[in-house]
Nucleic acid binder design. Structure first.
Lengths: 181, 181
DNA sequence: GTCTATACACCGATAGAC
DNA sequence: GTCTATCGGTGTATAGAC
């Protein structure tokens, strides 16, 4: 019996995201992806005619929109630079949600994923770094560029440790430390 | 025509490491792995009867021995704590070699790899953290545990950024900063 | 200790019914 | 817009010759 659509396109992207995060681009099979959205493989191709690359591209676009909303927008908002940085760090905790947060870009950079999405991912990281540096510059901090690189480093490293240890505590601890400066 | 063995078991592990780093556990196929050591798939099974899991386990063991030699041993050696930390950071640059260094444990934690190797990887990270904290404690630093977590965070994050940007500069920059403290 | 040949499952993707 | 059925290819793994 044909199933009725359970998810909007955004809802599908969220479900597919979980698979790509956990298994990477190559490791995520169409069977897993179809199961994740509750459709057959053939039905997935109706929504994503380009197949797996298409799905990963939509997932990346959805993730980019969330990064913009939760992490980048606060950096470019009103108010004192220090307040904006604090809001962005809080947004970072929301952006990397779940009991064991995983960075999608890290998973998608393995194997063939790098050739498909490397440029987009590099651009997102550059925008994040620039936003942090800009806010810190307005906050009067010294060496804003070096500081922004350090923040990205620590957050990304904390996400690796979240995967190693299997919970989100390393990320929370990292963000708390970064917020105290 | 049968090929003659080009590599010792250690040499094979080094070649296989490159594939597992770049593609992860699921993404690394037996065809790629066989090509990497210059043997047929069937011949690989002579050296690694357990198949792919067996190969990844040997690769992880070889990587653990290198971590011990380059990174952990300096931490536990003689001399002032500060000197030992400096030597370990230099060893870290050697441990993560190549033009685009990649953390094997990061790649192997994707997908099924986590179930196979998660415990071993978590143990290695714990040993690294403990060694750093111990050396910093003897060096008279304050909050050695928090400091050691920060170092691992930054190194792992720098390795992610190396993959994002495609070269080893983020790691070199990170290690230089860490050594100045 | 290497190889060719093969087994069988699953891969990504498509055709076409409903 | 969903499905079943199927395609050709590749996946991991094995058998057995040399």
């Amino acid at each position: 019996m044909p199933r009725i659509a359970k998810y909007t396109k955004t809802g599908m992207a969220e479900r597919l995201t979980l698979v790509f995060k956990a298994y990477g681009y190559e490791g995520a099979s169409l069977s897993m992806l179809a199961d994740a959205v509750g459709l057959s493989k053939a039905s997935l191709y109706h929504h994503f005619p380009g197949g797996k690359v298409d799905m990963a591209a939509h997932v990346l676009a959805h993730s980019g929109a969330r990064l913009q909303r939760f992490v980048l927008a606060p950096l470019l908002g009103k108010g004192r630079g220090a307040d904006r940085i604090g809001q962005s760090l809080e947004g970072t905790a929301h952006y990397y949600d779940g009991d064991m947060p995983i960075c999608l870009m890290n998973s998608l950079l393995l194997g063939e994923g790098r050739a498909h999405f490397g440029a987009r991912i590099e651009g997102a990281v550059a925008a994040w770094t620039a936003g942090l540096a800009s806010a810190m510059r307005e906050a009067g901090g010294e060496e804003p560029e070096a500081w922004s690189h350090m923040v990205i480093e620590r957050v990304q490293g904390a996400l690796v440790l979240c995967r190693v240890r299997g919970h989100r505590w390393p990320l929370e601890s990292c963000l708390e430390n970064l917020g105290q400066v």
